[in-house]
Simulated assay, not measured.
Amino acid sequence: MRLSTIALVALLAAGCAAPHDDAADAPSTDSPATATSTPDAASSDSEPARTTVPAQFQGEYATDTRACNSPAHESRLTIGAWRIKFHESSGAIVAVESGRNALTITAELTGEGKTREATYRFNLSDDGQILTDRDSGMKRQRC
């Protein structure tokens, strides 16, 4: 009986020292992203690319004041540090490229029962109040 107790204690202790699991290092959707995207040619090989949206781009946007006052308006867009949310889809941001007033976001979006990866390109006005989608031309004001 004593040998069984010692064996049980040894097994429990071994379970606490489980091998390293790379999946545990992946960022969750509720915590800051720590993954890196591919560095661009201008950065050094040892410098990771950013996956956090710069503060000047973060916020809530919609086409006009009335849309800003309607949380369910189809033009609503929320850009957070690590997540992006549209009217019918949202998800984790997996890559970010930014310049002074330009932002490119790649995100894993889930909506309407489907998951997809999408890339969005935005320009922010000099005063930080108008966000323009460079692909569609849609302009949204900061709410």
Results as ranks from 00 to 15, higher is better:
90 S>H: 10
11 L>M: 10
99 G>N: 06
103 L>S: 09
126 D>V: 13
124 L>A: 05
77 L>N: 01
39 P>C: 03
109 L>T: 00
60 E>V: 15
36 T>W: 11
63 T>R: 13
54 P>E: 00
27 P>E: 01
95 A>T: 04
100 R>D: 01
89 S>G: 04
29 T>V: 08
71 P>H: 14
89 S>F: 03
7 A>M: 08
71 P>K: 11
24 A>H: 14
109 L>G: 06
17 A>V: 11
40 D>L: 09
22 D>N: 15
50 R>C: 09
35 A>W: 14
86 F>R: 01
45 D>L: 12
123 N>V: 14
109 L>F: 05
41 A>L: 14
139 K>V: 07
81 A>R: 10
138 M>I: 06
65 T>V: 12
92 A>H: 07
74 E>V: 13
107 A>L: 01
131 L>G: 00
30 D>S: 15
102 A>N: 06
33 A>P: 01
116 R>H: 15
8 L>M: 02
22 D>A: 15
73 H>D: 07
125 S>T: 00
47 E>P: 11
19 P>G: 07
7 A>N: 00
82 W>P: 11
69 N>T: 13
83 R>D: 07
143 C>D: 12
2 R>N: 11
57 F>R: 04
62 A>N: 06
77 L>S: 00
36 T>K: 15
136 S>Y: 05
4 S>D: 13
79 I>V: 13
124 L>R: 04
125 S>L: 05
41 A>W: 15
100 R>P: 12
79 I>G: 02
77 L>V: 06
80 G>Y: 00
36 T>P: 09
23 A>M: 08
27 P>M: 00
71 P>Y: 08
106 T>K: 11
83 R>V: 13
103 L>P: 05
81 A>P: 07
117 E>H: 12
55 A>V: 12
37 S>Y: 08
58 Q>R: 08
10 A>D: 02
29 T>E: 09
45 D>Y: 08
45 D>R: 06
21 D>C: 07
59 G>R: 09
105 I>M: 02
27 P>V: 02
24 A>K: 15
126 D>K: 06
62 A>E: 04
16 C>E: 05
88 E>K: 12
25 D>S: 10
80 G>H: 02
115 T>C: 11
106 T>G: 14
5 T>G: 11
36 T>R: 13
105 I>G: 06
87 H>R: 09
43 S>C: 10
40 D>W: 10
104 T>F: 06
61 Y>I: 05
117 E>V: 12
55 A>D: 01
